[in-house]
Amino acid sequence: MIALVTAALAPGIALLSYFYLRNEYESRTFTQVLRAFIIGALLVFPIMVLQYALEAESIFEAEWLHAFVGVAGLEEFFKWFLLYFAIYRFVLFQSRYDGIIYGVALSLGFASAENVMYLMALGIDSAIGRAFLPVSSHALFGVVMGYYMGCAKKSDPNNFKLWISLSLVVPIILHGVYDLILLTIHENVMFIIVPFMFFLWWFALSRTKKANEKMA
């Protein structure tokens, strides 16, 4: 059991450490980041119950609806909601990168708790595959969400609505495409999902670079 929990949490902790250490400026306390991680972890349980209820009622039968609304829409909306109302409105952002740290922490809290539950059901043999796909993808969606929220906090107030909208819409689109690939492509899926993951990493890392640039 200890080995399973360790295997489930290790990818999330490693990714959070990576993005935390990429920050080039003095930033937030560890306690605040841990708080965001715990908030994300607690979010798993109501989301999974809601998704189970929707699947049981066959609300989203079409695969694209299931991908973009039943999974991506629900998960990214609630992560966005908590990031905005529990963190953004009450925590001082010293730079745009702070948004990325909090977004990644919350998303990885969600992904890590979800990973524990999946490994308990599927076994530790699936740990490597889940580390490279679901856990890392959640981290990258969190980077994107946090970047745009950081822009909303530190950029021209006149563009607030644009940045806040992008912080929700872009992660939903990316997450929806990711899930749609896994739902609809059953043969040679790795030839599609691996290039998409490279794109996600490139897109997310380009946001981290921009976030670390001093604003004019």
Results as ranks from 00 to 15, higher is better:
126 S>Y: 12
58 S>F: 06
68 F>V: 07
102 Y>I: 04
61 E>G: 11
49 V>P: 04
24 E>I: 03
22 R>K: 15
48 M>Q: 15
89 R>W: 01
99 G>D: 00
112 S>N: 07
75 E>F: 01
104 V>M: 03
97 Y>N: 02
37 F>T: 03
34 L>S: 13
103 G>T: 06
101 I>Y: 00
47 I>L: 14
66 H>G: 15
67 A>V: 10
28 R>G: 14
117 M>I: 13
93 F>C: 08
26 E>A: 15
42 L>T: 07
81 F>L: 15
36 A>H: 09
65 L>R: 12
42 L>F: 12
52 Y>A: 15
118 Y>R: 10
46 P>G: 14
41 A>H: 08
102 Y>L: 12
100 I>G: 00
113 A>I: 11
122 L>M: 06
43 L>R: 04
27 S>V: 02
116 V>P: 00
123 G>F: 02
27 S>P: 01
115 N>K: 00
24 E>W: 04
26 E>G: 12
90 F>K: 13
75 E>R: 06
22 R>L: 12
78 F>G: 08
82 L>R: 06
124 I>W: 03
93 F>S: 00
94 Q>F: 11
103 G>W: 14
34 L>H: 09
64 W>T: 11
100 I>K: 02
95 S>G: 12
77 F>H: 11
96 R>F: 08
64 W>K: 02
32 Q>H: 10
44 V>L: 11
26 E>S: 15
111 A>Q: 05
82 L>G: 11
75 E>P: 01
50 L>K: 04
123 G>R: 02
116 V>C: 09
49 V>S: 14
40 G>E: 13
59 I>G: 09
35 R>H: 10
115 N>F: 00
50 L>H: 03
126 S>W: 13
86 A>G: 01
37 F>E: 00
81 F>H: 13
81 F>Y: 12
113 A>K: 05
101 I>C: 01
105 A>I: 04
111 A>R: 05
123 G>D: 04
99 G>R: 04
49 V>N: 13
83 L>G: 05
56 A>V: 10
31 T>S: 13
40 G>R: 00
107 S>H: 06
120 M>E: 09
62 A>S: 04
101 I>K: 00
124 I>N: 03
77 F>C: 06
28 R>F: 09
45 F>L: 14
124 I>M: 03
117 M>V: 07
43 L>P: 05
117 M>P: 02
28 R>N: 15
36 A>Y: 13
129 G>L: 01
134 P>Y: 04
29 T>N: 13
71 V>C: 06
45 F>T: 15
38 I>M: 09
81 F>V: 15
79 K>E: 05
129 G>W: 00
34 L>E: 14
31 T>Y: 12
117 M>C: 05
124 I>F: 01
56 A>H: 15
53 A>P: 08
38 I>P: 02
116 V>H: 09
75 E>W: 05
47 I>C: 09
59 I>Y: 07
31 T>D: 14
80 W>F: 06
117 M>Y: 10
110 F>E: 00
109 G>L: 00
99 G>I: 03
98 D>R: 05
96 R>A: 11
49 V>T: 14
